[in-house]
Design a protein around this nucleic acid. Structure first.
Lengths: 253, 253
DNA sequence: GGTAATAACATGTCATAACAAGTTTGAAAA
DNA sequence: TTTTCAAACTTGTTATGACATGTTATTACC
């Protein structure tokens, strides 16, 4: 059941992909009205429920927005990572239709810093593996990823293809199911080294991300410093108000 | 399902909230099977499409996951709850023991920009209220908050104390219970105005946050630009791996 | 002219129905 | 006893139809 995946995809997925491609290609520019549901029903020859399922997925990915009574509109297709779920850069970008690649800068065994030791919960006498890569989005460099792994995981990485996302590699090839991750974000000036790799001015703003990923058994497997170009990357997520406070009656003003 | 004390909410939202409450209260622990769609149809007395709409929303919020042929399972671990709370700056900081204050810079009626119009879902002929404040943490300026409100909400703010968090004010004084918020984060250079207010050099990195807050009925109530000093503020949260894959075989190394 | 009612059209919600596809269970066959 | 396989679950996809609700353009009235 792996080969014939392209054969008969659900209709709503085909429609979604078609519309997504058109949006990303610029057929519908931001704030431009898209065909109504009736028109899509006619042009694709499907029922309304199928059209709406496609639109719902596009809405969830942030490519369109709708207003009751007015219509459906394209929204800006920005490089934006949804962080409701733990995803690697490539996973997140590919699902939005962007082309990604990664360039391995170095992989080596190191004596981990205090910060890395603490996060990965290893002793100073133990080594760790450091992987540095530059990530590209549509051929332009967007981030420098410095990843640290405990030895028992890291030693398997030397022989692997590190030009792709590491998360699927960990899960599928090394059989380490991932669980949660702790993430810190801050804005920082780029140092000389990072500025050079990202082809920007030293001191220009970067998004500095520290991410500590655990497996499902809550053991740390991967600690990373991610330096994103500030002008080409956005984090996006949504949160909910804690409803355990005042019962609050409904109604506004 | 007809005469309800509260204002009329769609059936699928009522069902979603009921199930969500049960999950958060621990009636269904993680990986525990939930009632099948047929059972939910029977117990709530609705059609399958309505049940599935509720389940879809719960899935989107990460509270459940489904496997075809097996069933629907609760997925939300308790720990994730904390980071999904929508909190104002002051609420978040005070709970960590920091001293905060805010200084009102200006409050005025404006003709909203296209971005603000769109986010707050208002027409160009309608006005909006803009509130600009500087926030202090332990006496040092850390952020410039520019908030936009629809007129029907904003007009009540002129007579209020804006030296505190606006979220409790909205909920307790204006009786607008808050729901979810959409948040975008990026690193940016400070412009001259913000640099001056935050007592930093123009061009220095700031964390640029756009936050659109909705009430429980999903109507936008507050759209904000938050500019944090890059060197004094960090966002921290944690996320879970999307485990829509088969539960059961735990891997490991 | 200006305004108010209305028609036309957009998305939002909900029902009933059917079949497809993956999983589990248990009975029949080896 | 073990294997096979079909029935009986589960969720996934899709169609048709109806009415609700919000927006826009037109028409009729003052």
């Amino acid at each position: 059941m792996k080969e014939n995946a392209m054969q008969h995809q659900p209709l709503y997925l085909q429609i979604k992909e078609t519309l997504k491609k058109q949006i990303l290609e610029g057929k519908y520019v931001p704030y431009q009205k898209m065909p109504s549901e009736s028109e899509l029903m006619a042009s694709f020859g499907v029922s309304r429920i199928t059209v709406r399922q496609a639109l719902r997925d596009l809405h969830r990915e942030g490519l369109i927005f709708t207003t009751q009574g007015k219509g459906t509109f394209a929204s800006k297709p920005k490089a934006m990572q949804e962080v409701q779920h733990l995803e690697g850069f490539e996973e997140a970008m590919n699902s939005q239709g962007y082309e990604t690649s990664a360039q391995l800068v170095s992989i080596r065994e190191i004596n981990p810093s205090k910060d890395v030791q603490d996060k990965l919960n290893i002793h100073s006498k133990e080594g760790a593996v450091e992987v540095i890569r530059v990530r590209y989005l549509n051929r332009e460099p967007v981030s420098v990823d410095t990843s640290f792994f405990p030895m028992q995981i890291g030693r398997h990485l030397f022989a692997r293809d590190l030009g792709r996302d590491i998360f699927p590699l960990l899960e599928n090839e090394l059989n380490i199911p991932l669980g949660r991750a702790e993430i810190s974000l801050e804005a920082r000036p780029a140092d000389a080294n990072i500025a050079k790799l990202l082809q920007m001015e030293p001191g220009a703003p970067i998004m500095w991300v520290q991410r500590l990923t655990h497996d499902v058994n809550n053991h740390p497997v991967d600690y990373e410093y991610l330096a994103f170009r500030g002008d080409s990357y956005k984090y996006h997520f949504h949160v909910e108000r804690d409803r355990t406070r005042t019962p609050g009656k409904q109604g506004g003003l």
